[in-house]
Amino acid sequence: MNRQPLTVMIVEDDELAAKIYEQFIHKVDGYRVVASAQTGKQALELLNVFTPDLILLDVYLPDMNGIELLWEIRRRHRGIDFIMITAANDTETVSEAIRGGAFSYTIKPIIVEKFISVLERFAAARQQLSTNRVVEQHEVDSLFRNDRKAAAPETAAKKMLPKGIDKHTLRLVREKLLQESASINADELAERVGTSHSTVRRYLEYLVTNNELEIDMIYGSIGRPERRYKRKQH
């Protein structure tokens, strides 16, 4: 018997970012986006009509802090879970998100593979809790482990960036690539990032070796083939 899809509300004031999250969610089986809100007030009004299983929540909203919204929704709707997606990286905000019971906390710009992995783990946890009446200690440990084990390889990777690859520039390049639905060449991306062709090319090639991008070779009638880059589809 097919399970009912997990329903998702996106609370994000950046309309483009919300659409990108929705595209990524569609890559994961068992999810359905039912609404988007750009303010805390809109989110609370929508919750008067229906109750989603999961809310993807930003901290920086135009009318209220996302953590305050989390606690307000917690008071009204105990059965909703949260995944935080935000640029807020201060320890106070992260601590409050943990106290509020957020399932995961992702600092922008998001990495597609990590985002999809979080959704898959959330779905697995929901399934486990809905089908089992009791759980063993190792299963409880797995549920409460959440992102800690998954975060370790990523942290190690950041510390081991090759020479010439700066983490801040890398984050910017990834952010710009997330906004592209089609392939892009180094010149086009250099214009968006605001740096040189050679610098962007170095970062693009690094992302290829890191298995985040793939290359399209466009062969014209004259000259060298054009090297275009696009995100890998998972």
Results as ranks from 00 to 15, higher is better:
M1Y: 07
P5T: 04
T7W: 03
V11C: 09
V11K: 03
G30H: 12
G30K: 09
R32T: 11
A35T: 12
A37W: 11
Q38E: 11
L47E: 13
F50K: 06
T51M: 12
T51D: 13
P52M: 11
I55E: 11
L56T: 05
V59W: 03
Y60V: 04
N65L: 12
G66R: 02
W71T: 06
E72R: 14
I73C: 09
R75S: 15
R76S: 15
I80N: 09
D81A: 13
D81N: 14
T86I: 12
A87W: 10
A87P: 01
V94G: 02
R99F: 10
G101R: 03
F103V: 00
S104A: 15
T106C: 12
K108R: 15
P109H: 08
F122S: 00
A123G: 05
N132Q: 14
H138I: 02
H138F: 08
S142E: 13
L143S: 01
L143F: 06
T155R: 11
M160C: 05
M160V: 05
L161W: 07
P162K: 06
K167L: 09
R171F: 07
K176N: 10
K176S: 04
A186D: 12
R202P: 07
R202W: 05
V208N: 07
N210Q: 14
E212W: 04
L213F: 11
I215Q: 11
I215W: 10
G220Q: 14
S221C: 06
S221H: 14
R227A: 04
R227W: 05
Q233D: 08
